[in-house]
Design a protein around this nucleic acid. Structure first.
Length: 483
RNA sequence: CGGGCCGUGGUGUAACGGCUAACAUACACGAUUCGGGUUCGUGUGAUUCCGGGUUCGAAUCCCGGCGGCCCGACCA
């Protein structure tokens, strides 16, 4: 059963430039069929480091959310079907992919329940009751949950039928305040992506046809994967009053009159893990940036039965020494051949390996090996805490710079159709003038598979002509083939 | 729902219409070894997806079914 599930995952690929990652990431992640004979793929994250990468992301994000005044809540998994129907764009966007519960308790339900594909409807139905006055605002909430979307084509990590995410929902008194919040949260995501996950991202606005179902505006951060395709890493939506009017999220304003709230919604999902893998990993396995890694350093003992006890004791000593320095460290004292242990921790992406054997004990030192470039360095034991912290930061910076360099090389400005097609073909972020027309956008998509990833926030006004239609344009949109 | 490819031990593959369906890996036992996946031996494990047909003879060819994967529409 397990093997069968693994096999399916193996065929559902995530790739780097040259390799299929399937073989090794199964150590970190396991795919499970949630139901026999159903095209369902969930994504189960096992915990080789004591806790998962997703939990690390949760911790880091939660801290940021709290800093901005957001509280956590949890709403039900099942949503009465009628709720979904209240907002027109929203229902049109999600209806095709919701899973519906029609039977329960051995009986047919009078009103079907849907398994949440997102929680706007059930939350906003409640928000109306919670908010009475402008004094109740802003309402700043976040929910960590799983959701289900019956996509036609699931893809490991990037588009699984069930996935984990965080969805933030806020209500504000004014349009300006709402928009500011939407942009603020986008900035939080950018910060996490770049400074914690070492993934350089671009920020901007989605085009009309790419925006969230029911949103006024969708802000996005986009990353470049090693295969030249773009990945929408996270989004933040300014919902305007679309939902507040549909669900009566209203309050008595300062002027004594009834007003509708201005809402935002922002989310980041387990897709981010897919982005992480596809940004940094190499053919030997996962590569985790130190600030994110659940385990930052692993001490591998190299021993024979005669000196094993002494070496393990030393390893524990070093472990305690590093824990005092807040290094997340694990001791691998298993009696295996060294090579076997080395390969295993490499595959799991631990940033630094600390090798400890008889030779090291003899001269009171250890050997540090970097995951990002494989370089080895011998360190005197007293210098270890300082060296390892420096090394972890160096790896973090190196990973970011490496990804940034790659992305820069994969970002092009073009001004005619021929160059556009070529640049898309080669897998680039392509800055090009666009007439702003939906039809042209659709035509470009059908001819090249490229979609508008974002329209940059700040750009010089520049006169140009749409690469496809030739019509005048004042700004560039950024196109790419995307996941 | 359309287009393409494919179904062989647990897994990954091989086998011209012809020998007991082969190899690798995994697993079990024993020995050996330990600063980059030690080595050797022994062993367990397949009605070649299902049903029919052609043939002296089918994993292989034909028909039907079932199932899977990839590409497209949908999408965090």
């Amino acid at each position: 059963m397990i093997d069968k599930a693994n096999n399916k995952a193996t065929k559902n690929k995530i790739t780097s430039r040259s390799e299929d990652y399937s073989q090794w990431y199964l150590d970190v992640v396991n795919m499970a069929d949630l139901a026999e004979n159903a095209p369902v793929r969930g994504c189960m994250i096992i915990k080789p480091h004591g806790y998962s990468i997703w939990e690390r992301i949760q911790r880091v994000l939660d801290d940021r959310f709290k800093e901005t005044g957001v509280s956590n809540v949890y709403f039900p998994l099942f949503i009465p079907e009628k709720f979904l129907n209240k907002e027109k764009d929203h229902v049109e966007g999600f209806a095709p992919e919701v899973a519906v519960v029609t039977h329960a308790g051995g009986k047919k339900l009078e009103e079907p329940l849907i398994v949440r594909p997102t929680s706007e409807t059930i939350m906003y139905d409640t928000f109306g009751n919670w908010i009475q006055s402008y004094r109740d605002l802003p309402l700043l909430l976040n929910q960590w949950s799983n959701i289900v979307r019956w996509e036609l084509r699931p893809r490991l990590f990037l588009r699984t039928t069930e996935f984990l995410w965080q969805e933030g929902h806020t209500v504000h008194e004014t349009e300006e305040e709402g928009d500011e919040r939407a942009r603020q949260m986008l900035e939080v995501y950018r910060d996490i992506a770049e400074n914690i996950m070492a993934i350089p991202v671009f920020t901007g606005v989605k085009s009309e046809s790419e925006k969230f179902a029911g949103a006024l505006r969708t802000y996005t951060i986009e990353a470049m994967m090693q295969d030249g395709k773009a990945l929408q890493f996270a989004t933040s939506h300014n919902l305007g009053q679309n939902f507040s009017k549909a669900f009566d999220v209203s309050f008595l304003g300062r002027n004594g009159e009834k007003q509708y709230g201005w809402q935002t919604r922002w989310g980041l999902s387990t897709r981010a893990i897919g982005g992480l893998i596809m940004t940094h990993s190499d053919d030997s396995g996962l590569v985790l940036p130190p600030r994110l890694a659940p385990t930052q350093a692993v001490i591998t003992t190299i021993s024979q039965s005669s000196d094993n006890e002494e070496i393990v004791e030393k390893a524990n000593e070093i472990e305690n020494m590093l824990k005092k320095e807040s290094v997340r460290v694990f001791v691998d004292k298993r009696d295996l051949r060294p090579g076997e242990k080395f390969y295993e921790w490499e595959r799991k992406g631990v940033p630094v390996r600390i090798e400890l054997g008889a030779k090291d004990i003899a001269d009171n030192s250890v050997v540090l090996v970097r995951r990002d470039n494989g370089k080895k360095v011998k360190v005197e034991l007293p210098d270890l805490p300082k060296s390892i912290n420096l090394l972890l930061e160096e790896i973090q910076t190196n990973l970011y710079n490496r990804a940034l360099e790659y992305r820069n090389a994969k970002t092009k400005f073009v001004d005619n159709w021929e160059d556009f097609v070529k640049a898309i073909e080669e897998g680039n972020f392509v800055h090009a003038h666009w007439s702003g027309e939906k039809e042209v956008e659709a035509q470009i998509k059908s001819e090249t598979k490229a979609t508008i990833r974002y329209i940059p926030f700040r750009q010089e006004k520049e006169e140009g002509r749409c690469v496809k239609s030739g019509k005048p344009s004042l700004e560039r949109a950024v196109f790419a083939k995307a996941y």
